[in-house]
């Protein structure tokens, strides 16, 4: 498979990333450019034997300013997995839909729109609620969505709980007057 991918590497401007799964011979990671993702996936599905879309999801690398889209495809004849990674600018999260290749990708895309705010123009029911009915906050799977803050603002914590830090408490009890406490 590796050689086959190397042959098309210029055609689809893909790069093999070996360091991500050096131990595995059944899992390859490959990086693809945004405009070449759909042609490459079409080639994988139709000509290279990667007929099974295992899952399609995003990872937020907020520090570097991109979403990593991961299309995991599987070849049943060789039992090989290929993870196609796509770096998507967080500021402009729009990418081509693949629901025409695998209908169930529409569900993944619907979820990703809801959870990350990634747009897949043309994907069926993309803007319909999937899991979060009536949600109007930041897409929650983005790293900048603070779950703790949200839960503190939304729910009422049970009162009467107070925990003590072991070191602080021992200081209070044993050496409140000593130099370090001044």
């Amino acid at each position: 498979m590796r050689t086959q991918l190397q042959q098309v590497s210029t055609r689809f401007s893909i790069t093999l990333i070996d360091e991500l799964a050096p131990e595995r011979d059944d899992l390859l990671f490959v990086q693809v450019e945004k405009d070449q993702a759909v042609p490459f996936l079409t080639w994988l599905q139709e000509l290279a034997g990667y007929t099974h879309l295992v899952f399609f999801t995003a990872v937020d690398f907020i520090e570097e300013g991109y979403f990593q889209l991961t299309y995991m495809v599987h070849d049943y004849s060789t039992h090989q997995d290929l993870a196609v990674l796509l770096k998507l600018d967080r500021e402009d999260p729009v990418v081509e839909s693949i629901h025409h290749l695998w209908p169930h990708a529409a569900t993944y895309q619907q979820e990703m729109y809801e959870m990350y705010g990634i747009e897949f123009p043309g994907s069926p029911r993309l803007h319909d609620d999937f899991v979060l009915e009536g949600w109007d906050d930041l897409p929650p799977m983005r790293r900048d969505f603070d779950t703790r803050q949200y839960s503190e603002d939304t729910y009422f914590p049970r009162g009467g709980r107070k925990s003590r830090d072991t070191a602080e408490y021992m200081k209070e009890q044993l050496y409140p007057g000593e130099a370090e406490t001044w």
């Binding site: 991500l20 799964a21 595995r24 899992l27 990671f29 295992v54 899952f55 999801t57 990872v59 937020d60 690398f61 990593q68 991961t70 995991m72 997995d81 993870a83």
Partner: peptide
């Protein structure tokens, strides 16, 4: 690093995709 593992559960292929960024917390578990 990133990895994907699968197993045959009663309903079919169950899989975990894990992304680690080198910290104490997983970056993403899908």
């Amino acid at each position: 690093g990133q990895t994907y593992k699968r197993a045959e559960c009663t309903r079919g292929e169950y899989g975990f995709f894990m992304v680690s960024d080198g910290s104490e917390y997983p970056r993403r578990v899908a």
